[in-house]
Design a protein around this nucleic acid. Structure first.
Lengths: 193, 193
DNA sequence: CGCGACGTTGATTTGCCTCAACGATTGTGG
DNA sequence: CCACAATCGTTGAGGCAAATCAACGTCGCG
């Protein structure tokens, strides 16, 4: 059934009984998201967390200068959420947009709180997920300090080749924190080698 | 008693009974760390997590070029840990050094795992802490993309004035991701205004 | 007291941005 | 399904932000 991917994901991180898995699974609702549709729009409150079953998403914000800044991309097996907005139920600073026709499993705040209350293993799961995400963000910031734009581009395309293939250069540049023009020049230099 | 600060911290994030608080507190051991001593040295495995009672610490790594890169500073009420190394018991990539004579409460891996097992509220506490740290790291990376070095310096000194006062410029520059020379020029420019 | 780390300053170089122009793609409404 | 508009990718010229290298005064510490 459609929740298999989620079950597999959970089992990779924590021990759960079949019953627990059932309880968790039943809190999630299947949803399709058409290409370029928004799952969350900046200014709205994030009322869900989502597990990506298929497709591809971009989580981004708009800075004061009006430029798009991509926090991350999410494909199968990744999570979509604005931790801050969902946790505190405050207006989000993020947009979540589907880059292709996609499928997700959604859980709303009430069900999430209920799971936290009833199943300690869910706390554990999200504790582990958050800590691993934390490590990844720390590493990414350090890479931003140490590496040049060219090195960061190569690191990204080598680490996530399948994601990079789906993306336009403009979106990649907004993830790397550089201008599209400069990314174009980087690619030219790489090809000339 | 000496665990008061920790109890206060915990109560700010989760509901705990007095008994639970007792159980948690008893897992922590008091320790003093002399100025410039290391609580963790790069290459060793992180066998503890620590809550800072007093003093000031720096968590940093050394990049390929041999430069120090500061992840963050920690004062009273902050936590010291290498999440990755502690979680997976692998060699750490981080140094944790006291910048002044300091006091911490330490918990080792065995006790931490026991707390996780016995008190679901501890899972919740660290889940919440991790998620809030995650938000902070996301914001910091976005600031690194959007802001100039001068703006990042001002943001840091305005957000953490008491921490900034304790630090040498060299350490601040390694946090901001710029050279000490350039920070010196930034400060000059600010003074001339 | 003397040494080594720190902070400052200047000259030069490099990485990346801005702006502008143009061809190539993509998406869309008729 | 085509035509047109809009967005995207590329290229070049010029400019600014920040790094590098080198020199020198200062401070803290042994």
């Amino acid at each position: 059934m459609m929740h298999d991917a989620l079950a597999k994901f959970i089992r990779k991180h924590v021990h759960v009984s079949a019953t627990e898995l059932q309880t968790i699974s039943h809190c999630f609702k299947f949803k399709t998201v058409a290409r370029s549709d928004f799952l969350l729009v900046l200014g709205n409150t994030c009322r869900f967390e989502a597990f990506v079953l298929s497709g591809c998403f971009r989580i981004f914000t708009i800075d004061e200068a009006g430029n798009e800044r991509t926090l991350y991309f999410a494909v199968k097996g990744w999570w979509l959420m604005d931790v801050d907005s969902f946790m505190h139920q405050t207006p989000s600073e993020l947009n979540i947009q589907a880059l292709e026709d996609s499928e997700v499993l959604l859980i709303d705040k009430v069900d999430k709180e209920r799971l936290y209350r009833e199943l300690p293993v869910v706390e554990k799961l999200f504790r582990i997920m958050s800590q691993q995400a934390l490590i990844a963000w720390q590493r990414r910031l350090m890479r931003n300090h140490c590496l040049t734009a060219k090195e960061r581009y190569q690191h990204f395309t080598e680490t996530y080749p399948t994601i990079a293939n789906k993306l336009t250069d403009k979106k990649i540049s907004s993830y790397l924190g550089i201008t599209p023009e400069f990314l174009s020049k980087i690619k030219k230099r790489i090809n000339e080698e």
